[in-house]
Design a protein around this nucleic acid. Structure first.
Lengths: 102, 102
DNA sequence: CGGCATCCTAGTCGATACTG
DNA sequence: CAGTATCGACTAGGATGCCG
């Protein structure tokens, strides 16, 4: 059984799979300003809903873009912040933005 | 005074809607090497099929990223090349690629 | 407060067949 | 050669409710 493995699985494609989500870069961009809680993010990213935010955050966390910190307080407190990898997305956002206004 | 909020503003979202296609940037990247015909592209972009290529090319053409030149030869000849706007996507691809390998 | 579970729609994507 | 048409699988995305 021949498995047609994509040899040229370029890192570029992998990156696109992560970044092409509708909200992904908006979330990352929002987190550029600093650590935020779940509800803060939900309010800051206009138009997103709970499920999408949760899903995106999980994906971003799995990819080492954001960092999650949960505090065992009685009203649960969970904070999200960018990792080094996440912050390194700044230029990407800048460049796309620059291209967009051209 | 008004601060230009480039953050969660539309041009970025618009750009993402165009660029987030699965094949979009691969096609653009392939065309960076120069003008190509339909079948050449289909062979160069590994994994794509006729329908997707046709659809993407139409979208890219509509957005002024590529331009299409058809020659009225008996076996139809159609060439695709990047516009100025299309070539200006080079840095975008570079940056994402750079981020991907990090 | 954080965030999963459920249901749903609309769009994406792929393989194949067919046309000018 | 350069596409279009058709079908069907898959999934991203949205609305809402519930639970620790």
């Amino acid at each position: 059984m021949e498995v047609k493995k994509i040899e040229n699985k370029c890192p570029f494609t992998e990156a696109m799979e992560l970044l092409s989500g509708k909200w992904t870069l908006s979330i990352v961009n929002t987190l550029m300003t600093g650590t935020m809680r779940f509800n803060e993010l939900e309010r800051a990213v206009t138009g997103i809903n709970t499920r999408m935010l949760a899903r995106e955050l999980k994906a971003l966390e799995a990819n080492g873009v954001v960092y999650r910190t949960a505090y065992a307080t009685v009203p649960p407190t969970v904070e999200y912040a960018l990792t080094e990898k996440g912050r390194s997305l700044g230029p990407v956002i800048q460049v796309i933005q620059g291209w967009a206004v051209t």
